[in-house]
Amino acid sequence: MQISVSSTLTVYHDGQFWVGLAEHVEDGRYGVARVVFGAEPSDEEILQFVINKWKKLLFFGDEPTETSKPARNPKRRAREASKALKQPAVSTKAQRALADQRETMKRESARKRSQCHAEESEARFEQRKLKRKQKHRGH
């Protein structure tokens, strides 16, 4: 059994910050994570990031992707690499995955907010009920 793994880190400036876009394809599953560096990272800082923090990145998404086998021909690999460099920094697949990740986080936080609001409302109702009971008893 052979597992295909491919990872790419693209560092670009989004107008305000330097951002790293980590794309990871493993066994047909595509994941993406966005990392904000802030100031322009040096090559050494990027290397340290990959060595120390790559394992901690959370790659989201379970959509199967069409992965091609790497070409054995070095000229073909060079052509594919130059073609990849000419493409925009953020792929549409990565943008979709990040948007899905944001939507998931938004739904989860809305669910938590709703649950918290319901608990607070229930606590206020219990407090009012207790207060009415105490008033009724003449305390």
Rank of each mutant, 00 (worst) to 15 (best):
A94M: 06
R102I: 14
Q16V: 03
T65V: 09
D100F: 15
A99Q: 14
L47M: 09
A78P: 02
Q134M: 15
L98N: 05
S42P: 14
L58E: 13
P64E: 02
R76N: 13
S91E: 11
N73G: 04
E40F: 07
K129I: 14
S82E: 07
K129P: 05
T65Y: 03
R124F: 11
E23S: 12
K93G: 10
G31R: 04
A97Y: 03
F17A: 12
A110R: 04
R34I: 09
Q48C: 03
E26H: 07
A39E: 10
G38N: 03
A94Y: 06
E119F: 01
P70W: 02
D27Y: 04
E45A: 05
V90C: 10
Q16A: 02
S114P: 01
A78S: 08
V35N: 01
L47D: 09
V25N: 05
E122A: 13
T8D: 08
Y30T: 00
Q127E: 09
Q134P: 00
K135H: 12
E80A: 06
L58V: 12
Q87Y: 01
R77Q: 14
G20Q: 03
E119T: 02
I46K: 05
F17G: 13
E103L: 15
S68E: 07
K53C: 03
A78G: 03
D14G: 12
A123L: 11
R76H: 09
K56M: 08
R76F: 02
L85S: 00
F37V: 00
D43W: 02
A22N: 04
N52S: 10
G61H: 07
H139W: 03
D43I: 09
V50M: 06
Q101I: 01
S42E: 06
A78T: 06
S82C: 02
G31S: 07
T67C: 05
E80C: 08
Q127A: 05
R96V: 03
G28I: 03
K129W: 15
G138K: 07
D62R: 07
W18Q: 06
D43T: 06
Q87N: 06
A99K: 15
V11G: 02
P88K: 12
